[in-house]
């Protein structure tokens, strides 16, 4: 049985991520209601919606930081169950960037980047350091490699966090409101990095209220409310002709700012 779930058994153009009727409860409170979603290889998806609508919970289920209770989630054909082997496999393929950066404060920037490749992927120190410098250059922050996170600005920390995720060479990147904790003047430097990843056709799911980002790079935009997916559309249609009243109301609120 588990054989059919391993990645080499995957169909060539099967979706990278499949969520099928996923439900989740916290006690009596249903936080995810029948979430179904396919994300193809190279697809860039933006999720928006009011605070508390379940956006974070939905993407945290994809790398099993949260457990769903019913329905199925498959990542590159591997189903997320209690099986530790599957969870480990999925976490190696899925990187995540958090609102609060979550860098490791006791390690230098370089060690933040090399720790997981060394301890999880068992690569050599020299290899991982060369790779780390490569990704630090990509996020334009190589000169800070030997500093500690607390010595960097918020925008710099978030770019380090993106580089740290990239060092695991993931096939999929999840972003949970990566610019929400940043001062306005630092948002652009982080968005620029995200746009450049999107232009390279990294498969990504971004929870964000940066509608400019959604318009420029998203293949589809998802609107969530009260644990449900209300609307899914390409950005042009999503912003010009939203079908649902709740989407229109939400858009009028975020676009005002």
């Amino acid at each position: 049985m588990p054989d059919t779930q391993m990645p080499n058994a995957q169909m060539p153009d099967a979706p990278m991520i499949q969520m099928i009727n996923v439900n989740k409860w916290y006690g009596n409170f249903q936080v995810l209601k029948d979430i179904s979603l396919n994300v193809a290889k190279g697809e860039r998806v933006v999720i928006c919606g009011p605070s508390g609508s379940g956006k974070s919970t939905a993407i945290r289920c994809i790398n099993r930081l949260e457990q769903h209770q019913t329905g199925q989630i498959l990542v590159e054909g591997v189903e997320l169950t209690d099986q530790v082997k599957n969870i480990d496999h999925v976490r190696r393929e899925v990187g995540m960037v958090f609102q609060q950066f979550n860098l490791f404060p006791h390690l230098t920037v370089l060690d933040n980047l090399t720790l997981a490749p060394r301890r999880v992927r068992k690569q050599s120190r020299a290899d991982t350091e060369a790779q780390a410098m490569h990704y630090l250059e990509r996020v334009k922050i190589a000169e800070q490699a030997h500093k500690y996170p607390s010595q960097l600005s918020g925008g710099q920390q978030q770019r380090v966090a993106i580089a740290r995720a990239l060092c695991m060479e993931p096939h999929i990147l999840l972003f949970d409101e990566p610019t929400s904790a940043l001062d306005p003047e630092m948002i652009k430097e982080v968005l620029d990095v995200m746009v450049s990843l999107a232009e390279d056709h990294m498969t990504m799911i971004c929870v964000t209220h940066e509608m400019g980002f959604a318009k420029t790079v998203a293949d589809k935009v998802i609107f969530m409310d009260h644990g449900q997916i209300i609307e899914v559309a390409p950005p042009a249609a999503f912003f010009s002709t939203p079908k649902h009243e709740r989407t229109r109301l939400f858009l009028s609120q975020v676009l005002k700012h």
């Binding site: 790398n63 976490r91 997981a116």
Partner: peptide
């Protein structure tokens, strides 16, 4: 809790998380 989340999302197992992230801090 973000330290647990970040280290788990990088594929670290429990022992690695404890050894390199949680206990040193």
């Amino acid at each position: 809790l973000g330290q647990w989340d970040a280290s788990a999302s990088l594929g670290m197992n429990f022992v690695t998380q404890m050894r390199y992230i949680i206990l040193p801090q």
